[in-house]
Amino acid sequence: MIRVIDIHKSFGKLEVLKGINCRIAPREVVCVIGPSGSGKSTLLRCINQLEAVNSGQIFIDEQEITSRHTDINKIRQQVGMVFQLFNLFPHRTTLENITLAPMKIKGIPKDEAEDIANELLRKVGLTDKSSVYPNQLSGGQKQRVAIARALAMQPKVMLFDEPTSALDPEMVGEVLEVMKDLAYEGMTMAVVTHEMGFAREVGHRVLFMDEGIIMEEGTPAQIFDNPHNVRTQSFLSKVL
């Protein structure tokens, strides 16, 4: 579903990604872990071209998104993204946050878009919040709305960029619960996270990144119980 071939990315003189290769299969849940500054988020942002790569190729469904000739807006409609800081539209209600993109981009009629949105709100457990504005929601609720907003475009892949890092501890669970349901439904997911419990339980595969490269990858059992790389061992000893 996603193929990343030898991508490099620099911000000025700082090389953040130093040749990343990875694949994500359909229905696979891949968790990316690693210390901050290791390039995890940058990798995710490159996958939907919020950051342009300096070299290398990224394919989504055999379409090269790093090519100039690709209509990136079309691709992004199929790739949902959830951000650390939610980035809900503050001037729109919960429902409008979810219906905006389907209506404006796909031209779906309002009542149809609202049906989809209400169904998604039910899924993330926020049926009663459809008419409130984002500033009246808790962090966990905001993030669940953000997930519903991304799902409204019916993406083939969902990218999660540290979705629980900005949340109060007691709200982490409700967001992970929604993500877990999504994974069990067979959504293809790439999740940058510090939630090792989630990675172990839900992830099919775990990538450990450090200093701009993938140091080690394997099943959660391999990575968490029997890491081979010294860096992986030292990172896990600090976070587990």
Partner: peptide
């Protein structure tokens, strides 16, 4: 906020 543009673009908006 910069994140607003990113969120909008990530949904596929031009």
């Amino acid at each position: 906020e910069k994140g607003q543009m990113e969120a909008a673009r990530s949904l596929g908006m031009t």
